[in-house]
Design a protein around this nucleic acid. Sequence first.
DNA 1: CAAACTATTGATAATGGATCTCATGAACGC
DNA 2: GCGTTCATGAGATCCATTATCAATAGTTTG
Lengths: 132, 132
Amino acid sequence: MQRMTRQRQSIADMLAATSDFKSAQQLHDLLRERGEPAGLATVYRTLQNLADAGELDVLRTEDGEMLFRQCERGEHHHHLVCRSCGKTVEIDGPTVEDWATRVGRAHGFSSIEHTIELFGTCEECAARPASS
Amino acid sequence: MQRMTRQRQSIADMLAATSDFKSAQQLHDLLRERGEPAGLATVYRTLQNLADAGELDVLRTEDGEMLFRQCERGEHHHHLVCRSCGKTVEIDGPTVEDWATRVGRAHGFSSIEHTIELFGTCEECAARPASS
DNA sequence: CAAACTATTGATAATGGATCTCATGAACGC
DNA sequence: GCGTTCATGAGATCCATTATCAATAGTTTG
């Protein structure tokens, strides 16, 4: 049975409140700062569960760290992520979807899936010299 | 100065001989089996160098492991990878490249990079019931 | 060819994200 | 409340990758 605990509630709230991709560690820190601490293991577990349930989108940074985000739309879409602050824009690209399956088929591949993520520096971070 | 050592030669040969994406660990094992062992650190370092020099393409598996492959073309391109046998086809998509930067700019992002990989089942693997 | 110079190697330690362990604590049905 | 059972979390563990650094081996030079 699935129980609603204070930690799960906090994590869910946190995710609902932000619109950026965050790592488990970041969430762990944010929760502590907010005075609603949760064990790191719990954060990881909860994120895993939510991701499995399809309630979170997951992606990996260049250095392999997992980032999570609660997305507005449930349907398939992609992301434009600021590599310095995590700011995220949801993108859909019918053009690209078509291109992907078309190219796949052309080479005799079936059950085609694709990974498409865009990374860049958002306006604010580009303006700022270099801080956190 | 860049020196040509036995290890580097072996690793380069190994990469030239295969057409599939391989992990550092796999290459390390293959080299040992072949009787041309190289330290794991050396394998990682060499792969890193080659990748930095743009002579290798890198991608990450779902569980975050890095895979390397020597691609025919030096220019930017993407891959269509068979998820069951690793067969890889090099893809280029001018359409997609444009789309990526266009979308990025439209949202005020700069220094835009993108990750686009296609996964599917190749003809041979689709025909075969289920083996390795 | 040998000495000297220095890039490279590699066994091993260190890192760091993610997962596992398991005794303790908290949800919730009754 | 009570008890059953799931959840928590501090710390151990895993595993890919990177750093350390003394020993080794390309290269150059005399």
